[in-house]
C-alpha cells in the first residue's frame, strides 16, 4: 500500500488529488490518504443543492460547497474531522465497500475506538454514525472515501444541512439523515490532529505502507484538476451554472417574506413562496406563474405585478418582491 500525505485543507485541491491519483498516476497497488478540510459541505454526485443545503447559512458561515464524484448524501466536514481515501486498482465493477471499511474499522479498534459497520456501509459507535462512505468507479480503478467525525461542529452541521423534500428536484438523490456523534466522546484527551496521527499510525501497523510524495509537476496538475473539475460552479450547483437561492426579507408593516428558487436554462424554476405576510394570494398559483419565466427583471416584474393585482400582499409591493429575486445575487 502507498500512503500519500495531504497538507491541503482545500476540498477542491483534495478532490483533485484523488482524481489525479485515480485517473492519471495509476499506481499498481492501493493508495491511502488522510485529510481534512476547512468548513465544507459535500454534495453527492446527483444531489440537488437547493434541497440539501440551507444556502443562507452556508453563505453566512463562509462554508465551502463542493460536489463529489461519488454517490450518496450530503456531509459536513471541517478540521475537527478526518477524511480517508482508498484507491484500488480493480477490474471488477461490482460494488464492494468491505475491504476499505474493514481496514478503517480495524485501525479504529486498534486505537481503542469500538466501531462497527451497519447496513448502509457506515461506521457506527453505539448505534450512532461516526463515518459515512461513498465510492466511484472508473475503468480499472475504484475509489472509496469516507468521513470520520472527531470534534466536528455538529451544531453548524445541523444548520447547514437541510433536506427539504418540497424543493427536491425530480429525479435527484436525497440524503438520508442519521444520528451522528463525534468520536472525541470516546477519547476526550485527544485533539483532532492526535486522532488523525494515531489513525495513520494504526493503518501503518496494519499495512506497512510506503510513503509517496508528489513531485512539483504532479502538484501543479492536482491544482489544475481541482480548479477545472471541482471548483467549477457549474459542476457544484448545476449544469446551467446558476445556483439555488433562498432569500428572506422582513418588511416593516408587511412581515417576513421568504422566496426560494433555482434557475435552469436561464428561467426561474422551483419557486417557493412562504412567510407570515397577510394576503389572499394563492402561493401555489403565484409559484406556477413564475416557474418557467425568463430570468429577466422586466419579465419577472410583469408576472409579479399581474399576480399582486389580483391578490395584493399587505405592506409589500411588486418591486420589493422583484428586488428579492434579483438584488441579492
Amino acid at each position: 500500500m502507498i500512503y500519500v500525505p495531504v497538507m491541503s485543507l482545500d476540498v477542491y485541491h483534495n478532490f483533485g488529488l484523488e482524481y489525479y491519483l485515480m485517473t492519471e498516476h495509476h499506481f499498481n497497488e492501493p493508495v491511502f490518504m488522510l485529510w481534512s478540510t476547512t468548513p465544507t459541505v459535500m454534495l453527492g454526485k446527483y444531489q440537488d443543492a437547493a434541497a440539501e443545503l440551507n444556502v443562507e447559512a452556508v453563505k453566512r458561515n463562509h462554508v465551502k460547497v463542493a460536489r463529489r464524484y461519488s454517490g450518496g448524501g450530503t456531509i459536513y466536514t471541517d478540521q475537527g474531522g478526518c477524511q480517508f481515501t482508498l484507491i484500488y486498482p480493480d477490474d471488477r465493477t461490482e460494488i464492494d465497500f468491505s475491504s476499505g471499511l474493514e481496514l478503517i474499522q480495524k485501525a479504529l479498534n486498534q486505537i481503542g475506538i469500538k466501531a462497527t459497520t451497519d447496513s448502509r456501509n457506515d461506521l457506527v459507535v453505539g448505534g450512532r454514525k461516526v463515518s459515512g462512505s461513498a465510492q466511484y468507479v472508473t475503468p480499472g480503478y475504484k475509489l472509496h472515501h469516507g468521513s470520520l467525525l472527531f470534534e466536528s461542529n455538529l451544531d453548524l452541521m445541523n444548520q447547514l444541512l437541510n433536506v427539504d423534500p418540497v424543493k427536491l428536484a425530480a429525479k435527484r438523490i436525497a440524503s438520508v439523515h442519521q444520528r451522528t456523534v463525534n468520536l472525541n466522546e470516546q477519547e476526550p484527551s485527544w485533539t483532532a490532529a492526535d486522532f488523525r496521527e494515531n489513525l495513520r499510525q494504526a493503518v501503518y501497523d496494519l499495512t506497512s505502507f510506503q510513503e509517496y510524495h508528489l513531485i512539483a509537476d504532479e502538484q501543479a496538475r492536482v491544482v489544475e484538476i481541482g480548479q477545472q473539475r471541482f471548483a467549477d460552479p457549474k459542476f457544484i450547483y448545476g449544469r446551467q451554472g446558476q445556483g439555488a437561492f433562498q432569500v428572506k426579507r422582513y418588511f416593516q408593516g408587511g412581515g417576513l417574506v421568504k422566496i426560494a428558487y433555482s434557475i435552469y436554462h436561464d428561467q426561474l424554476a422551483d419557486v417557493h413562496l412562504t412567510g407570515d405576510f397577510f394576503s389572499n394570494l394563492d402561493a401555489v398559483k403565484f409559484e406556477h406563474a413564475l416557474d418557467g419565466t425568463d430570468y429577466d427583471r422586466q419579465r419577472v416584474s410583469n408576472v409579479i405585478r399581474d399576480q399582486l393585482a389580483e391578490d395584493p400582499i399587505l405592506g409589500v409591493d411588486a418591486d420589493q418582491l422583484v428586488n428579492m429575486l434579483f438584488d441579492h445575487v
Binding site: G44, K45, S70, G72, V137, A170
Partner: peptide, 27 residues
C-alpha cells in the same frame, strides 16, 4: 449510474457508433 452510494462508469463492449439512448438522467 448510481447505486448504494457508488457511482459506476459503464464501458462499451463494442466498437461502433452510438445510435440511440433509451434512458435519461434520473431514470
Amino acid at each position: 449510474v448510481e447505486t448504494d452510494k457508488v457511482i459506476s462508469q459503464v464501458e462499451s463492449q463494442e466498437d461502433g457508433v452510438l445510435k440511440e439512448q433509451n434512458v435519461n438522467t434520473g431514470d
